[in-house]
């Protein structure tokens, strides 16, 4: 694959905002990453880390101060007509359009992408997202969870190759969250590349092959969640000995049990009971964003 043919590639992106008092804030600081076809790539980070700014630049809602974002090799600012057609976007905040029904909104959205008579696709998405019985309802009549699903349907109405999900499960109940995870997994299996920003580490662990962990505008870690856990979290080994004594050993998450026992000169035959608490992404995340 040519380097510039990644579904999404962000290079040395910088975004600086000027505040009213003249102070300049660097929201995004030299961020680079790419997404492979059919990959779910997660951008994790605390509030204000710069995740939404990156999405805003990719979708041309904001202009980068420097650096570039490319979709299938095309710059989002130079060829927005092409790049926007490849992408579907689910914004962080729920859209509250009060004038139209679910069906009208999806028809309009199809039209914006130049698609007439998109009923088959709309029916499929409404069925898939559990909105079929609500298609003639005004958005105002929908619950928060339904509105969130409608936003996802909108983003997918033109069958995009790249999907940007900006905290899609923020504020939704556990049941809906799990059904959305299932849906994301299905989209991935269809070959759609997904950029997911999230606060939920469990979500990133379940869905993302790779994550970029952001802090204060910079990517401080890039790799799989397993790699993050191995590098930045600890494993706790609780041992109860035959002698009646007990001990807790805290080791790096990547360390194997045999290695730990050998390191502490413990014989298997001395152990009565053993409990291992594996390293967790929360701990790794916390270490990365608090350093």
């Amino acid at each position: 694959m040519l380097h510039n043919h990644f579904p999404l590639e962000v290079s040395h992106l910088v975004k600086t905002y000027a505040l009213k008092n003249g102070v300049r804030v660097e929201a995004v600081r030299d961020v680079s990453f790419y997404m492979k076809p059919g990959e779910v790539f997660g951008l994790l980070g605390p509030n204000g880390a710069g995740k939404t700014s990156i999405i805003s630049i990719i979708t041309t809602l904001e202009k980068a101060t420097s650096g570039s974002a490319r979709v299938f090799g095309e710059d989002v600012d130079s060829n927005p007509y092409f790049t926007k057609k490849q992408m579907g976007v689910v914004h962080q905040e729920i859209v509250n359009t009060g004038f139209f029904t679910v069906n009208e909104i999806l028809k309009f959205q199809s039209g914006y992408y130049g698609i007439r008579n998109n009923n088959e696709r709309i029916d499929y998405l409404l069925e898939k997202l559990g909105l079929k019985d609500h298609r003639e309802k005004n958005v105002k009549q929908l619950s928060g969870g339904m509105r969130r699903r409608l936003m996802i349907a909108k983003a997918l109405v033109h069958s995009p190759k790249v999907l940007l999900l900006d905290e899609p499960t923020a504020g939704v109940d556990v049941h809906l969250r799990e059904s959305l995870w299932q849906f994301v997994t299905e989209l991935k299996s269809e070959g759609i590349s997904i950029l997911l920003t999230t606060h939920y580490l469990e979500e990133a662990e379940k869905l993302c092959e790779r994550v970029g962990i952001m802090n204060k505008g910079k990517i401080v870690f890039m790799g799989s969640t397993q790699e993050a856990i191995a590098q930045y979290s600890t494993k706790k080994v609780y041992i109860e000995f035959n002698s009646g004594e007990a001990a807790v050993y805290t080791e790096t998450a990547s360390a194997g049990l045999v290695e730990i026992l050998a390191h502490h000169k413990i014989q298997f035959t001395d152990i009565k009971n053993i409990k291992i608490e594996e390293g967790r992404l929360e701990e790794a995340f916390s270490k990365m964003v608090n350093t």
Binding site: K84, M87, H91, V95, N96, T97, Y112, Y113
Partner: peptide, 15 residues
Amino acid sequence: TSKFSGDLEDMRVVP
């Protein structure tokens, strides 16, 4: 009203 509802952001991300 589109600014208020968030629709206007959608207008920017479509072609």
